[in-house]
Write a protein that binds this DNA or RNA. Structure first.
Lengths: 195, 195
DNA sequence: CGGTATAGTGGGCATGTGCCCACACTAGTG
DNA sequence: CACTAGTGTGGGCACATGCCCACTATACCG
């Protein structure tokens, strides 16, 4: 039997291909054929490794969340030690893109995906707000440090950030928004955050 | 020749049918067949009244904007006279739904639509931010009255509101979000707005 | 080295979508 | 009462998408 390592390689290649398509052409271009073509393999591979295309997308979202989690955790830790004191906007911008594209963009584009995620993800974990929860954890740390006004609810801040990020990226025809725009929006939402 | 009134009637029926589908089943369900079926007429009608389906959608968006404009203007006027003093949240919620569903939802769901809108809408009018401009006008009036912190940029506030509204409605599987959620979010975004 | 199980390939089908087109219907006009 | 121009109808085509499946290639095992 061929190596199980190769199996994981293919899955990773498919995930990476899907992410490239998402970034380059948007969520509407993320078809099963586009993924396999971008990955450079035959279209049948997808069906052999995943029950159906929605299952692939669900695992794609989870994979993206898994890779964001240490990123967000690092930000939380850094906020605690004050290491990335001046990078509030920069750090949020990175999460912006991940969450907006990987989660909101996909879930908005494909109707059945949310239901599928509910089946796949362990019970009790809110699916759509998964990314928001991560950002909210980071924002809570920032607020505890006095960088964010104490009367702001981190959950709502995170939700607002994600929605705005989605519109920001979905509304620019694939072009990246200028850094200034993101910074202005983050400042507006988060309020009187000190650097 | 049949009456030109009937012609307008059919267009209105198609627009209304499309809006019902958007509210009930979401932007992904808005196909040409779904519209004609919902309107109770044959599928060929759409092609006779519009160059193609994207042209229909573009006019649908413009129609929605036309119907929102007096609504927003009334809010601006009311804000000037202080008539709807306590209804900041309520008024914004109404615009929330219109803008989020009619503009952001459609443009996010259909890739070619934005380009088509650029051809259709008179030059100089920003397409995606059309709804934002309307809301920004209202927010400017509110800010001038001291109901919104003077250091908030109405354009960014409006953009943030729209993005959040879209996520709010797209993330609830078609259910309306509770009024409390909208109010909390509006308060968070707009800041220390007085009632 | 032959056998076998598993991964990979691509032809093809069912479905849905937008669009075209020939035809039927209707309402004004001479 | 024909005639005609414009509207409404639905069959059907071309294309894309997800999925199935028979076939091939490859790696391990006796």
């Amino acid at each position: 039997m061929p190596t199980g390592v190769a199996l994981r390689e293919v899955r990773r290649q498919l995930f990476d291909a899907a992410e490239r398509i998402l970034l380059r052409d948007g969520a509407n271009a993320l078809t099963s054929r586009a993924v396999t073509t971008e990955a450079g393999c035959a279209k049948g591979v997808l069906h052999r490794h995943f029950a159906d295309f929605d299952a692939f997308l669900a695992e794609l979202v989870i994979d993206r969340i898994d890779r964001m989690d240490p990123q967000a955790a690092a930000l939380r830790d850094a906020a605690g030690t004050g290491t990335v004191a001046g990078n509030l906007t920069e750090a949020l911008t990175a999460l912006f893109e991940s969450v907006a594209i990987a989660i909101v963009g996909l879930i908005t584009a494909r109707d059945g995906l949310r239901a599928r995620l509910r089946e796949t993800i362990p019970a009790g974990v809110p699916v759509l707000t998964e990314g928001a929860t991560m950002i909210a954890g980071y924002l809570t740390a920032e607020r505890d440090l006095g960088r964010i006004a104490p009367d702001r609810d981190p959950d709502i801040l995170a939700f607002t950030l994600i929605g705005t990020a989605h519109l920001l990226y979905a509304g620019t025809d694939g072009d990246r928004p200028e850094d200034g725009a993101v910074e202005e929006i983050v400042t507006t939402i988060v309020g009187d955050a000190v650097r």
